[in-house]
Simulated scan of single mutants.
Amino acid sequence: MAEVRECAQCGTPFTPRREHARFCSTRCRVTWNREHAGVAAAPAVAIDWSVTAMTEAGGRLAAARDWDPARLAAAVAEAVWWVTLVDATLVRYHPRDYEAALASEDVRRRKTEQALEGLRYVRNQLGKSADPAGFVCLTSGEGTTAWTWRPQPEPQLGELTPRARRWELSRYHAYQARLAGRGIARTFTRCTDFLAQAASPASAGTAHAGGR
């Protein structure tokens, strides 16, 4: 059976089309944002430096070819944390900017959404004390070497509720489809570029407010 949630604004039951969906319609989402403007604006104060930290964490991986596995794994864990933090903040507090960025011509929406979903899977596994080194491997080909995402076995999710199992399996399948066997640096470049674009209106608004 499809999952049913209650709209955070009007309480109407609805079937979410996305993992983070909280509203049954655009009208309810806009109304909620308007009524909670003061609350929603608070995280925007930290968005600018969060995006900077995220971009720097992802950028370090682009120069990680000669790193040892332990150092690389630690850097990946840090970058995953920053990307998923910024992603969740934008989805929750700035959904219109997020959707507008996804719809832009220079963003490959499906690939970007799958990459972010795959990183949420990694985040959740790291939160269960999984070793970050288990997600990375050094791959050689055509005279070059690169750090890539290691394919993962299907997780054991018996302790989760049916709804939680569906979401986690969706994240796992996104990981296998969009991350496994692909370059780690490229994944973070795609995600950080998109999130920086999505965060730009909120950062601009914060800067404007601070200059009053």
Rank of each mutant, 00 (worst) to 15 (best):
L157F: 03
A37W: 13
V83E: 05
P16Q: 12
V122T: 08
E154C: 05
R186T: 06
G158D: 11
E56F: 03
N124W: 12
W32T: 03
S104L: 01
A8Q: 09
V4T: 15
V76Q: 14
H36T: 04
Q176E: 14
P132W: 06
C137V: 11
F194Y: 13
A130T: 08
A77L: 01
A70S: 06
D87G: 10
I47F: 15
R18P: 03
P155H: 05
V76N: 13
R120W: 14
A177D: 13
D68V: 10
Q9L: 10
D106Y: 00
G205M: 08
R171C: 00
E154W: 02
R123P: 00
R163P: 00
L169Q: 06
A74K: 05
I47Q: 15
R96T: 08
G183A: 08
L169W: 10
A2T: 09
Y175F: 07
S25C: 04
A64Y: 03
D66V: 02
R65C: 10
C10S: 06
A79C: 07
T52I: 08
A40M: 06
A40N: 11
L126F: 03
A21T: 09
E113G: 02
V107P: 02
A100Y: 10
R65Y: 09
A40S: 04
A46E: 06
E19W: 10
R182L: 06
G59A: 06
W147C: 06
A115G: 00
A115V: 14
E35I: 06
W81Q: 11
H173L: 07
Q152F: 12
S203P: 04
T112H: 05
E117N: 11
A53I: 04
E142V: 07
A70F: 08
R123D: 01
A103N: 09
V107N: 01
Y121T: 07
G205L: 14
A53Q: 13
V83N: 03
E56S: 07
T112W: 08
V4S: 09
T148C: 07
L72S: 05
S104E: 13
V107I: 11
A8T: 01
G143F: 04
R165P: 00
V136A: 15
T12S: 12
C28L: 06
A199S: 14
W147P: 02
